[in-house]
Design a protein around this nucleic acid. Structure first.
Length: 391
DNA sequence: GATCCACGGGAATACACGGATG
DNA sequence: CATCCGTGTATTCCCGTGGATC
Protein backbone atom coordinates (compact mmCIF):
# COMPACT_ATOMS: atom_id res chain seq x y z
CA UNK A 1 0.00 0.00 0.00
CA UNK A 2 1.37 3.41 -0.79
CA UNK A 3 1.54 6.30 1.58
CA UNK A 4 -1.53 8.08 0.25
CA UNK A 5 -3.58 4.99 0.81
CA UNK A 6 -2.29 4.69 4.33
CA UNK A 7 -3.10 8.30 5.06
CA UNK A 8 -6.56 8.05 3.56
CA UNK A 9 -7.29 5.07 5.68
CA UNK A 10 -6.40 7.03 8.80
CA UNK A 11 -8.35 10.09 7.75
CA UNK A 12 -11.51 8.08 7.59
CA UNK A 13 -11.14 6.77 11.10
CA UNK A 14 -13.96 8.91 12.42
CA UNK A 15 -16.47 7.66 9.91
CA UNK A 16 -18.31 4.43 10.09
CA UNK A 17 -15.97 1.61 9.30
CA UNK A 18 -15.95 1.83 5.55
CA UNK A 19 -15.96 -1.22 3.43
CA UNK A 20 -13.92 0.22 0.59
CA UNK A 21 -10.92 1.90 2.12
CA UNK A 22 -9.20 2.71 -1.09
CA UNK A 23 -10.46 2.12 -4.61
CA UNK A 24 -7.09 2.61 -6.22
CA UNK A 25 -5.40 -0.13 -4.29
CA UNK A 26 -8.32 -2.34 -5.23
CA UNK A 27 -7.95 -1.49 -8.90
CA UNK A 28 -7.27 -4.46 -11.15
CA UNK A 29 -4.86 -2.33 -13.16
CA UNK A 30 -2.72 -1.28 -10.24
CA UNK A 31 0.35 -3.43 -9.75
CA UNK A 32 1.74 -4.05 -6.31
CA UNK A 33 5.31 -3.21 -5.56
CA UNK A 34 5.71 -6.85 -4.60
CA UNK A 35 3.30 -9.05 -6.55
CA UNK A 36 1.88 -12.05 -4.73
CA UNK A 37 2.45 -15.65 -5.71
CA UNK A 38 4.68 -15.20 -8.72
CA UNK A 39 8.04 -15.98 -7.15
CA UNK A 40 8.92 -18.66 -9.72
CA UNK A 41 8.36 -16.22 -12.56
CA UNK A 42 10.57 -13.64 -10.90
CA UNK A 43 13.28 -16.25 -10.61
CA UNK A 44 13.05 -17.19 -14.26
CA UNK A 45 13.21 -13.61 -15.42
CA UNK A 46 16.12 -12.99 -13.08
CA UNK A 47 17.87 -16.05 -14.47
CA UNK A 48 17.52 -14.53 -17.88
CA UNK A 49 18.80 -11.18 -16.70
CA UNK A 50 21.67 -12.74 -14.80
CA UNK A 51 24.51 -11.52 -17.07
CA UNK A 52 23.51 -8.03 -16.01
CA UNK A 53 25.06 -8.55 -12.62
CA UNK A 54 28.41 -9.10 -14.28
CA UNK A 55 27.94 -5.94 -16.27
CA UNK A 56 26.84 -7.65 -19.49
CA UNK A 57 23.67 -7.55 -21.53
CA UNK A 58 21.38 -10.56 -21.78
CA UNK A 59 20.10 -11.56 -25.22
CA UNK A 60 16.70 -10.40 -26.42
CA UNK A 61 13.84 -12.42 -25.03
CA UNK A 62 10.10 -12.86 -25.08
CA UNK A 63 7.96 -13.37 -22.00
CA UNK A 64 4.53 -14.68 -22.77
CA UNK A 65 1.41 -15.97 -21.08
CA UNK A 66 -2.35 -15.60 -21.02
CA UNK A 67 -4.45 -12.64 -19.97
CA UNK A 68 -4.13 -11.98 -16.24
CA UNK A 69 -1.21 -14.34 -15.70
CA UNK A 70 0.80 -11.66 -13.94
CA UNK A 71 3.27 -10.84 -16.72
CA UNK A 72 2.94 -7.10 -16.36
CA UNK A 73 2.85 -7.29 -12.59
CA UNK A 74 6.16 -9.13 -12.53
CA UNK A 75 7.97 -7.19 -15.21
CA UNK A 76 6.79 -3.77 -14.06
CA UNK A 77 7.77 -4.49 -10.46
CA UNK A 78 11.09 -6.03 -11.39
CA UNK A 79 12.15 -3.26 -13.73
CA UNK A 80 11.10 -0.62 -11.29
CA UNK A 81 13.28 -2.20 -8.61
CA UNK A 82 16.18 -2.73 -10.99
CA UNK A 83 16.22 0.81 -12.30
CA UNK A 84 16.01 2.14 -8.78
CA UNK A 85 18.96 -0.04 -7.86
CA UNK A 86 20.97 1.25 -10.79
CA UNK A 87 20.38 4.91 -10.07
CA UNK A 88 21.21 4.41 -6.42
CA UNK A 89 24.49 2.60 -7.02
CA UNK A 90 25.37 5.03 -9.78
CA UNK A 91 25.03 8.07 -7.61
CA UNK A 92 26.97 6.25 -4.91
CA UNK A 93 29.77 5.64 -7.37
CA UNK A 94 29.63 9.18 -8.57
CA UNK A 95 30.17 10.66 -5.16
CA UNK A 96 32.85 8.24 -4.04
CA UNK A 97 34.97 7.46 -7.10
CA UNK A 98 34.26 10.30 -9.48
CA UNK A 99 33.76 9.60 -13.17
CA UNK A 100 33.56 5.85 -12.96
CA UNK A 101 30.81 5.07 -15.48
CA UNK A 102 27.87 2.87 -14.62
CA UNK A 103 28.79 -0.75 -14.05
CA UNK A 104 25.31 -2.12 -14.49
CA UNK A 105 23.09 -1.67 -17.54
CA UNK A 106 20.17 0.70 -17.29
CA UNK A 107 16.60 -0.59 -17.15
CA UNK A 108 13.63 0.87 -18.92
CA UNK A 109 10.01 -0.26 -18.89
CA UNK A 110 7.88 0.78 -21.86
CA UNK A 111 4.16 0.12 -22.01
CA UNK A 112 3.08 -0.11 -25.63
CA UNK A 113 -0.47 0.67 -24.60
CA UNK A 114 0.70 4.16 -23.95
CA UNK A 115 3.04 4.26 -26.88
CA UNK A 116 1.01 5.61 -29.74
CA UNK A 117 3.81 6.80 -31.96
CA UNK A 118 7.44 6.47 -32.82
CA UNK A 119 8.02 9.73 -31.04
CA UNK A 120 6.43 8.46 -27.81
CA UNK A 121 8.49 5.31 -27.87
CA UNK A 122 11.86 6.99 -28.15
CA UNK A 123 10.73 9.67 -25.77
CA UNK A 124 9.88 7.14 -23.08
CA UNK A 125 13.19 5.35 -23.44
CA UNK A 126 15.27 8.51 -23.43
CA UNK A 127 13.31 10.05 -20.61
CA UNK A 128 13.94 7.01 -18.44
CA UNK A 129 17.68 7.16 -19.03
CA UNK A 130 18.45 10.78 -18.32
CA UNK A 131 17.97 12.83 -15.20
CA UNK A 132 16.42 15.94 -16.69
CA UNK A 133 13.04 15.45 -18.30
CA UNK A 134 12.90 15.41 -22.08
CA UNK A 135 10.55 17.94 -23.73
CA UNK A 136 7.42 16.57 -25.36
CA UNK A 137 7.07 19.36 -27.86
CA UNK A 138 9.28 21.34 -30.11
CA UNK A 139 11.71 18.47 -30.46
CA UNK A 140 11.88 16.18 -33.45
CA UNK A 141 11.85 12.41 -33.46
CA UNK A 142 15.27 12.29 -35.05
CA UNK A 143 16.59 14.57 -32.34
CA UNK A 144 15.42 11.94 -29.85
CA UNK A 145 17.16 9.07 -31.62
CA UNK A 146 20.30 11.20 -32.04
CA UNK A 147 20.38 11.78 -28.32
CA UNK A 148 19.80 8.10 -27.63
CA UNK A 149 22.68 7.20 -29.92
CA UNK A 150 24.94 9.66 -28.21
CA UNK A 151 23.94 8.38 -24.82
CA UNK A 152 24.28 4.69 -25.60
CA UNK A 153 27.52 5.09 -27.51
CA UNK A 154 28.97 6.59 -24.38
CA UNK A 155 27.56 3.85 -22.17
CA UNK A 156 29.87 0.93 -21.49
CA UNK A 157 27.13 -1.34 -20.29
CA UNK A 158 24.08 -0.53 -22.37
CA UNK A 159 20.46 -0.83 -21.44
CA UNK A 160 17.71 -3.42 -21.11
CA UNK A 161 14.30 -2.35 -22.32
CA UNK A 162 11.16 -4.21 -21.29
CA UNK A 163 8.34 -3.70 -23.77
CA UNK A 164 4.99 -4.64 -22.36
CA UNK A 165 1.76 -5.46 -24.17
CA UNK A 166 3.35 -6.41 -27.44
CA UNK A 167 0.91 -7.47 -30.10
CA UNK A 168 -2.20 -6.05 -28.53
CA UNK A 169 -4.17 -4.48 -31.31
CA UNK A 170 -3.02 -0.95 -30.67
CA UNK A 171 -0.56 1.59 -31.97
CA UNK A 172 2.69 -0.25 -32.44
CA UNK A 173 2.63 -3.47 -34.42
CA UNK A 174 5.29 -6.12 -33.95
CA UNK A 175 7.19 -5.34 -37.17
CA UNK A 176 7.13 -1.68 -36.16
CA UNK A 177 8.63 -2.60 -32.84
CA UNK A 178 11.51 -4.43 -34.45
CA UNK A 179 12.01 -1.38 -36.64
CA UNK A 180 12.01 0.92 -33.64
CA UNK A 181 14.77 -1.06 -32.01
CA UNK A 182 16.65 -1.18 -35.28
CA UNK A 183 16.88 2.59 -34.98
CA UNK A 184 18.89 2.26 -31.80
CA UNK A 185 22.47 1.17 -31.08
CA UNK A 186 23.28 -2.46 -30.53
CA UNK A 187 24.25 -2.24 -26.89
CA UNK A 188 20.60 -2.52 -26.09
CA UNK A 189 18.73 -5.65 -25.20
CA UNK A 190 14.98 -6.00 -25.05
CA UNK A 191 12.48 -8.14 -23.26
CA UNK A 192 9.17 -8.23 -25.03
CA UNK A 193 6.05 -9.15 -23.08
CA UNK A 194 2.87 -10.37 -24.73
CA UNK A 195 0.08 -12.89 -24.82
CA UNK A 196 0.75 -14.64 -28.09
CA UNK A 197 2.73 -17.86 -28.25
CA UNK A 198 6.28 -17.31 -29.46
CA UNK A 199 5.59 -18.78 -32.89
CA UNK A 200 2.69 -16.42 -33.47
CA UNK A 201 4.45 -13.44 -32.00
CA UNK A 202 6.66 -12.94 -35.02
CA UNK A 203 9.56 -12.33 -32.67
CA UNK A 204 11.34 -15.67 -32.66
CA UNK A 205 13.89 -14.60 -35.25
CA UNK A 206 14.94 -11.75 -32.99
CA UNK A 207 14.90 -13.45 -29.61
CA UNK A 208 17.16 -16.06 -28.08
CA UNK A 209 14.90 -17.09 -25.24
CA UNK A 210 11.27 -17.23 -24.45
CA UNK A 211 9.81 -17.50 -21.00
CA UNK A 212 6.36 -18.87 -20.48
CA UNK A 213 4.11 -17.71 -17.64
CA UNK A 214 1.45 -20.17 -16.58
CA UNK A 215 -1.96 -19.01 -15.34
CA UNK A 216 -2.42 -18.64 -11.60
CA UNK A 217 -3.59 -21.76 -9.86
CA UNK A 218 -6.73 -21.18 -7.79
CA UNK A 219 -5.09 -21.34 -4.34
CA UNK A 220 -2.55 -18.75 -5.42
CA UNK A 221 -5.27 -16.57 -6.82
CA UNK A 222 -6.98 -16.76 -3.45
CA UNK A 223 -3.80 -15.34 -1.91
CA UNK A 224 -3.80 -12.56 -4.46
CA UNK A 225 -7.39 -11.71 -3.60
CA UNK A 226 -6.89 -11.86 0.14
CA UNK A 227 -3.88 -9.60 -0.12
CA UNK A 228 -5.75 -7.03 -2.15
CA UNK A 229 -8.71 -7.21 0.17
CA UNK A 230 -6.49 -6.53 3.14
CA UNK A 231 -5.07 -3.48 1.38
CA UNK A 232 -8.23 -1.94 0.04
CA UNK A 233 -11.10 -3.21 2.16
CA UNK A 234 -12.18 -3.10 5.76
CA UNK A 235 -10.99 -5.94 7.96
CA UNK A 236 -12.75 -9.25 7.53
CA UNK A 237 -14.66 -7.96 4.54
CA UNK A 238 -13.78 -10.89 2.34
CA UNK A 239 -13.83 -14.35 3.72
CA UNK A 240 -11.76 -17.15 2.38
CA UNK A 241 -14.68 -19.05 0.99
CA UNK A 242 -15.79 -16.16 -1.19
CA UNK A 243 -12.26 -15.61 -2.40
CA UNK A 244 -12.25 -19.23 -3.44
CA UNK A 245 -15.48 -18.72 -5.29
CA UNK A 246 -14.02 -15.82 -7.22
CA UNK A 247 -10.79 -17.66 -7.88
CA UNK A 248 -12.60 -20.69 -9.25
CA UNK A 249 -14.62 -18.54 -11.58
CA UNK A 250 -11.63 -16.48 -12.72
CA UNK A 251 -9.90 -19.48 -14.21
CA UNK A 252 -6.37 -18.33 -13.54
CA UNK A 253 -6.91 -14.75 -14.65
CA UNK A 254 -5.90 -12.36 -11.90
CA UNK A 255 -7.24 -9.33 -13.73
CA UNK A 256 -10.72 -10.82 -13.88
CA UNK A 257 -10.51 -12.03 -10.29
CA UNK A 258 -9.54 -8.59 -9.02
CA UNK A 259 -12.20 -6.99 -11.17
CA UNK A 260 -14.81 -9.26 -9.64
CA UNK A 261 -13.58 -8.32 -6.18
CA UNK A 262 -13.79 -4.65 -7.08
CA UNK A 263 -17.33 -4.84 -8.41
CA UNK A 264 -18.54 -6.98 -5.54
CA UNK A 265 -17.03 -4.58 -3.01
CA UNK A 266 -18.61 -1.63 -4.74
CA UNK A 267 -22.00 -3.26 -4.63
CA UNK A 268 -21.72 -4.12 -0.95
CA UNK A 269 -20.48 -0.64 -0.25
CA UNK A 270 -23.42 0.99 -1.97
CA UNK A 271 -25.68 -1.02 0.27
CA UNK A 272 -23.62 0.12 3.25
CA UNK A 273 -22.52 -3.29 4.26
CA UNK A 274 -19.07 -4.04 5.56
CA UNK A 275 -18.79 -7.60 4.38
CA UNK A 276 -19.14 -9.12 0.96
CA UNK A 277 -21.83 -11.69 0.35
CA UNK A 278 -22.30 -14.43 -2.16
CA UNK A 279 -24.77 -12.39 -4.14
CA UNK A 280 -22.28 -9.53 -4.35
CA UNK A 281 -19.89 -11.91 -5.97
CA UNK A 282 -22.49 -13.45 -8.23
CA UNK A 283 -23.62 -10.05 -9.43
CA UNK A 284 -20.07 -8.93 -9.96
CA UNK A 285 -19.22 -11.96 -11.99
CA UNK A 286 -22.31 -11.44 -14.12
CA UNK A 287 -21.21 -7.92 -14.95
CA UNK A 288 -17.85 -8.94 -16.34
CA UNK A 289 -18.04 -9.73 -20.05
CA UNK A 290 -16.11 -12.69 -21.24
CA UNK A 291 -13.94 -12.38 -23.05
CA UNK A 292 -13.21 -8.93 -21.81
CA UNK A 293 -10.59 -6.36 -22.55
CA UNK A 294 -8.17 -5.31 -19.85
CA UNK A 295 -9.21 -2.19 -17.97
CA UNK A 296 -5.63 -1.14 -18.47
CA UNK A 297 -6.28 -0.90 -22.16
CA UNK A 298 -9.39 1.18 -21.54
CA UNK A 299 -7.54 3.57 -19.29
CA UNK A 300 -4.77 3.88 -21.82
CA UNK A 301 -7.13 5.43 -24.36
CA UNK A 302 -6.78 9.16 -25.01
CA UNK A 303 -8.69 11.39 -22.61
CA UNK A 304 -11.50 12.26 -24.99
CA UNK A 305 -12.13 8.65 -25.88
CA UNK A 306 -12.39 7.81 -22.21
CA UNK A 307 -14.84 10.67 -21.91
CA UNK A 308 -16.91 9.13 -24.70
CA UNK A 309 -16.86 5.81 -22.89
CA UNK A 310 -17.78 7.44 -19.63
CA UNK A 311 -20.88 8.83 -21.30
CA UNK A 312 -21.55 5.57 -23.05
CA UNK A 313 -21.76 3.54 -19.86
CA UNK A 314 -24.57 5.79 -18.63
CA UNK A 315 -26.76 5.58 -21.71
CA UNK A 316 -29.92 3.54 -21.71
CA UNK A 317 -30.68 0.87 -24.21
CA UNK A 318 -32.74 3.04 -26.54
CA UNK A 319 -29.90 5.50 -26.90
CA UNK A 320 -27.62 2.66 -27.83
CA UNK A 321 -29.78 1.33 -30.61
CA UNK A 322 -27.23 2.16 -33.31
CA UNK A 323 -23.81 3.67 -33.60
CA UNK A 324 -25.36 6.80 -35.02
CA UNK A 325 -27.91 7.09 -32.22
CA UNK A 326 -25.22 6.46 -29.63
CA UNK A 327 -22.99 9.12 -31.12
CA UNK A 328 -25.89 11.59 -31.14
CA UNK A 329 -26.71 10.88 -27.53
CA UNK A 330 -23.13 11.19 -26.38
CA UNK A 331 -22.31 14.33 -28.30
CA UNK A 332 -25.33 16.11 -26.88
CA UNK A 333 -24.39 15.38 -23.30
CA UNK A 334 -23.25 18.22 -21.12
CA UNK A 335 -19.53 18.07 -20.66
CA UNK A 336 -18.90 16.44 -24.00
CA UNK A 337 -17.48 19.04 -26.30
CA UNK A 338 -17.10 16.91 -29.38
CA UNK A 339 -19.06 17.01 -32.59
CA UNK A 340 -21.34 14.15 -33.43
CA UNK A 341 -19.12 13.11 -36.29
CA UNK A 342 -16.07 12.91 -34.10
CA UNK A 343 -17.88 10.89 -31.46
CA UNK A 344 -19.00 8.52 -34.15
CA UNK A 345 -15.50 8.08 -35.45
CA UNK A 346 -14.25 7.61 -31.89
CA UNK A 347 -16.77 4.86 -31.35
CA UNK A 348 -15.51 3.05 -34.41
CA UNK A 349 -11.93 3.51 -33.29
CA UNK A 350 -12.69 2.34 -29.77
CA UNK A 351 -14.32 -0.73 -31.26
CA UNK A 352 -11.10 -1.26 -33.18
CA UNK A 353 -9.20 -1.21 -29.90
CA UNK A 354 -11.44 -3.92 -28.50
CA UNK A 355 -12.93 -1.93 -25.64
CA UNK A 356 -16.35 -2.12 -27.23
CA UNK A 357 -17.71 -4.48 -29.82
CA UNK A 358 -20.03 -3.69 -32.66
CA UNK A 359 -22.97 -6.02 -32.86
CA UNK A 360 -25.26 -6.20 -35.83
CA UNK A 361 -28.73 -5.38 -34.63
CA UNK A 362 -32.19 -5.25 -36.12
CA UNK A 363 -32.97 -7.95 -38.60
CA UNK A 364 -35.34 -6.80 -41.32
CA UNK A 365 -36.72 -3.33 -40.65
CA UNK A 366 -35.80 -0.28 -42.65
CA UNK A 367 -33.77 0.39 -45.73
CA UNK A 368 -30.07 0.63 -46.17
CA UNK A 369 -27.32 -1.15 -44.40
CA UNK A 370 -28.48 -2.43 -41.01
CA UNK A 371 -27.03 -0.56 -38.06
CA UNK A 372 -24.95 -2.06 -35.30
CA UNK A 373 -24.93 -1.13 -31.68
CA UNK A 374 -21.89 -1.08 -29.45
CA UNK A 375 -21.55 -3.40 -26.51
CA UNK A 376 -19.08 -2.98 -23.71
CA UNK A 377 -16.19 -5.38 -23.53
CA UNK A 378 -15.29 -4.25 -20.05
CA UNK A 379 -17.28 -4.04 -16.82
CA UNK A 380 -18.78 -0.58 -16.36
CA UNK A 381 -18.60 -0.36 -12.57
CA UNK A 382 -14.84 -0.21 -12.07
CA UNK A 383 -14.46 2.03 -15.09
CA UNK A 384 -17.01 4.51 -13.72
CA UNK A 385 -15.54 4.50 -10.26
CA UNK A 386 -11.93 4.83 -11.24
CA UNK A 387 -12.64 7.33 -13.99
CA UNK A 388 -14.65 9.60 -11.71
CA UNK A 389 -12.02 9.28 -9.02
CA UNK A 390 -9.36 10.51 -11.38
CA UNK A 391 -11.20 13.57 -12.65
C1' DG B 1 9.96 29.08 -35.56
C1' DA B 2 9.63 23.91 -34.72
C1' DT B 3 7.39 19.83 -33.44
C1' DC B 4 3.73 16.51 -32.44
C1' DC B 5 -0.83 15.21 -32.42
C1' DA B 6 -5.91 15.58 -31.52
C1' DC B 7 -9.98 17.12 -34.03
C1' DG B 8 -13.08 17.99 -37.46
C1' DG B 9 -14.88 17.32 -41.68
C1' DG B 10 -15.77 14.98 -45.46
C1' DA B 11 -14.68 11.98 -49.30
C1' DA B 12 -14.29 7.23 -50.56
C1' DT B 13 -15.76 2.67 -49.97
C1' DA B 14 -18.50 -1.21 -48.32
C1' DC B 15 -22.79 -3.28 -47.56
C1' DA B 16 -27.83 -4.55 -47.64
C1' DC B 17 -31.89 -4.67 -49.96
C1' DG B 18 -35.35 -4.57 -53.43
C1' DG B 19 -36.54 -3.98 -58.00
C1' DA B 20 -35.37 -3.95 -62.83
C1' DT B 21 -33.10 -6.21 -66.56
C1' DG B 22 -31.31 -9.70 -69.64
C1' DC C 1 -32.33 -17.48 -62.55
C1' DA C 2 -28.28 -14.53 -62.36
C1' DT C 3 -26.79 -9.98 -62.52
C1' DC C 4 -26.98 -5.18 -62.36
C1' DC C 5 -28.55 -0.80 -60.46
C1' DG C 6 -30.20 2.71 -57.26
C1' DT C 7 -30.88 4.10 -52.82
C1' DG C 8 -29.82 4.67 -48.17
C1' DT C 9 -26.78 3.49 -44.45
C1' DA C 10 -22.62 2.08 -42.18
C1' DT C 11 -17.74 2.13 -42.00
C1' DT C 12 -13.16 3.39 -43.19
C1' DC C 13 -9.73 6.51 -44.60
C1' DC C 14 -7.35 10.68 -45.28
C1' DC C 15 -5.66 15.23 -44.61
C1' DG C 16 -5.57 20.15 -43.29
C1' DT C 17 -5.81 22.98 -39.23
C1' DG C 18 -4.81 24.64 -34.84
C1' DG C 19 -3.49 24.11 -29.94
C1' DA C 20 0.14 23.33 -26.81
C1' DT C 21 4.80 23.38 -25.80
C1' DC C 22 9.60 24.04 -26.27
Amino acid sequence: MDIDARINRRRRRDDEPRLVQDYESLSPVAHLDEPVGRAPVFERVLDHLDPVFDGHLPPNAYLHGGFGAGKSAVVAALFSHLSRLVTETQSAIHTSTRAAGPTTPGFVYVDLRETTSEFRFYHTVLNALVDESVPEHGISTTELTDRLHALLDRSRTGVVVAVDHVGEAAGVETPDLVGLFAGLPSNLSWLAVGRADPEESGLTTYTATSIRVEPYRPPVLVDVLMTRASEGLARQALDHELARRIADWADGNAHDALTALFVAADRASRESRTRLTESDVDDAVAEIPRPSVSLGRVFALPANKQLVLRSLVDLDEAERASVTATADAISSRPGVDLSRGTVKRFLYEIAESGAVERVRSREPSGKGRPPSRVELRFPPTPFRRLYDLRQ
